[in-house]
Each structure stands twice: as C-alpha cells, then as structure tokens.
Design a protein around this nucleic acid. Structure first.
Length: 173
DNA sequence: GCAGTGATCATA
DNA sequence: ATGATCACTGCC
C-alpha cells in the first residue's frame, strides 16, 4: 500500500503538515532505481513574521518557490556546499514550508539531498512521480504521543522565533 | 572547537 | 562591482 500524497495534502497549516509528514516515505526515482526513506525529522518555517524563515525579509529570487503553490519543492544551496530540501505548504502567496531534516536511513538535511542526488533542478517542481521525487503514504501510522517537539536547529539568530518548538521528530535524537 | 565552501543578497 | 551571510558537515 503505497499512495502518492496529493498536492492538496500540503495546502494546510504548516505545523499540521509537518507532523503529518512523519512516517511518510520520501521516494526518489533516479536512473531507473527507486530509493525510499521514511521521514522522521522535520521543521516548519511559517510566513514572513517568522524571523527564522527565509521569507521573513520578503520575496527574493532564492526563496520565491516558498511563495508558490503547496506541494512544490523548495530547494536551496547554503554554506557553499549543501542543498536543503523543503516542501512548500499552505496557500499560494503565503510563504511557508517544511524542511526535511532526517529519515530512517539517512539523517541530516544536507546528507539526504546528497544521498538522493537532489539539487537546484527540483526547486519549484511539484512533488509527484513525474518530477522524480515525491512522498508516499505506506500505511505507517505515527501516534500523536510518539511525536517529539524541539526548537529548530541553527536559527539562534531569530530571537523569540528561535525558541518556537517547530521541529517535529520520531525515533531517537 | 571551527574551517571549508560558494550562491545569494544588499549595497553601490 | 564587492563583502557579509548562511535552516550544515566533517574534521580537529
């Protein structure tokens, strides 16, 4: 039982979408091979008021994907080496996204993109089979009581927003 | 603990 | 045009 998540799955409240993604499978079709990883760690970035969100300083060439339709990928490059994978949420025009931070087999936002060969090409593409990168529901249920919360990582500069427990994860860490 | 790495953005 | 910044990783 593997059901591709419809794009409308993402056009809801970002925190709800973030929690909903735990236990789902990130699937990459690459050179006739299919790799799947269960999502276990995510962070929510919500709107222009969120000082930790890239969109807090307005729309730019880099972050415009976050302002687009839900269910698209927002992929950006940072620290000169790393690609970060996010899925856009909520309604078009409202900048919000969920960062995929960890999976069962590969942990670490930059490691995931490296492992799955994800780069700028995916920025703005829809999360469906056609794009080669999508998310599936394979029937794995995550109980609300199993979801742990923590402040987001690497956003100390964001003042009060840095304290918001918008990181959601299951298993260890 | 902190260097490495380079696209992106603001400033000019 | 230049300089600062950066949702990280890996090595010291």
């Amino acid at each position: 039982m593997a059901k591709e998540l419809p794009l409308k799955f993402y056009s809801i409240d970002t925190l709800a979408a973030a929690k909903g993604l735990l236990g789902k499978y990130l699937v990459r079709r690459y050179r006739s091979k299919t790799i799947s990883l269960m999502i276990t760690d995510v962070e929510a970035y919500v709107g222009q008021d969120d000082k930790a969100c890239h969109a807090s300083c307005g729309k730019t060439e880099r972050n415009k994907a976050m302002f687009g339709r839900a269910g698209r990928w927002y992929v950006y490059f940072t620290y000169g080496i790393h690609w970060m994978l996010n899925i856009v949420t909520e309604s078009e025009g409202y900048p919000a996204a969920v960062l995929i931070r960890g999976t069962d087999k590969v942990w670490g936002p930059a490691r995931i993109t490296k492992f799955l060969k994800i780069d700028k090409k995916f920025n703005g593409l829809p999360a469906n089979k056609k794009s080669g990168l999508w998310i599936e529901d394979r029937g794995f249920k995550v109980k609300e009581s199993e979801i742990k919360r923590a402040p987001r990582v690497g956003v100390d500069y964001a003042g009060a927003w840095a304290k918001k427990p918008w990181r959601f994860y299951i298993l260890g860490e």
